[in-house]
């Protein structure tokens, strides 16, 4: 396809995404609040930058990342590839869940790296850093969320391969979240819960969906219509745990540092 055509199409799509939001925002601003916000021109320019930026971003992903990523998800789950990496082939054993190890590694790596690039997570991290007065680092938060997504998606792939029912995993995750909420620092809890929802958008969802679909199509006995879903749910659950762990570690380190400085003054 012609690049210019593609650019026009993706820009049109982004405009139609932004339009209802802009209509609600500016509708309430002028009909209900009836006041021009400060720096109104700058804000309008900001909307334009968001529009242009998001269009270019999506077009770029469509050009360089999505086709390769989708192809890879398909190739790594291909029975031929799995057969070639079948560790018990010499012993004559059947293929089991361990033979999908490249799939789990890919799931982990792609989950981590796409989350690091996720624009909405960058937005929340900037805000959290600002609100916490710098106590929550932008990088630290993003890395812990990305680790959570990576673990979640690998575990989700394992679930598709072995064919367990999804609700036991999710309910188990909920129990962990509830237990950890009781011991985690109070300030982090709302942010941790939020990071579950922000991780899965523009970059992560298309690749993860392709992986789920590829796996459920090729693993014997799986139905893509039923087993292909659920990876997003894993990717939204585990960051809650990893962000709370991040805060607990930071608190622990601060306590150790305090104790050390107290010792050295004595």
């Amino acid at each position: 396809m012609n690049i210019l055509d593609a650019l026009a199409e993706v820009t049109l799509n982004t405009v139609s995404d932004v339009l209802p939001i802009a209509a609600i925002i500016f509708g309430f601003q002028f009909l209900v609040l009836r006041r021009k916000p400060a720096h109104f021109n700058e804000i309008l320019w900001g909307f334009l930058w968001v529009l242009v930026g998001l269009s270019l971003f999506l077009l770029g992903l469509e050009l360089c990342l999505f086709p390769l990523g989708r192809l890879m998800a398909g190739q790594l789950t291909d029975p031929v590839f799995i057969q070639a990496h079948h560790h018990a082939a010499a012993l004559g054993g059947a293929i089991d869940w361990r033979d999908y190890y490249w799939v789990y590694i890919f799931a982990f790596a792609i989950g981590f790296s796409t989350t690091i690039a996720e624009p909405s997570l960058i937005a929340v991290a900037i805000k959290a850093n600002e609100v916490s007065g710098g106590a929550i680092g932008i990088g630290g938060l993003r890395i812990s969320v990305a680790l959570g997504v990576a673990v979640g998606i690998s575990l989700g792939c394992y679930r598709i391969v072995v064919g367990d029912p999804i609700h036991w995993y999710i309910i188990g995750g909920y129990i962990l979240v509830v237990l950890q909420t009781m011991v985690a620092p109070k300030l982090i809890i709302p942010l941790a819960y939020d990071s579950g929802g922000v991780t899965t958008s523009t970059v992560t969802v298309p690749l993860v969906a392709a992986l789920g679909l590829g796996l459920s199509e090729t693993v014997p006995g799986r139905n893509p219509l039923i087993d292909g879903f659920g990876l997003i749910a894993f990717a939204s659950l585990f960051p809650i745990l990893s962000v709370m762990t991040y805060a607990q570690l930071a608190e622990f380190r601060a306590r150790v540092a305090r104790r050390k400085s107290k010792d050295s003054t004595h």
């Binding site: 400060a38 242009v52 930026g53």
Partner: peptide
């Protein structure tokens, strides 16, 4: 095509974050 995609993705993310801080957050 891949290289062009990379350039678009980098520019797009840069512009988006700029617009975020100038438009979406303030409003």
């Amino acid at each position: 095509e891949l290289l062009m995609g990379v350039v678009f993705v980098v520019l797009g993310l840069t512009f988006f974050i700029h617009g975020l801080e100038q438009g979406l957050f303030p409003i």
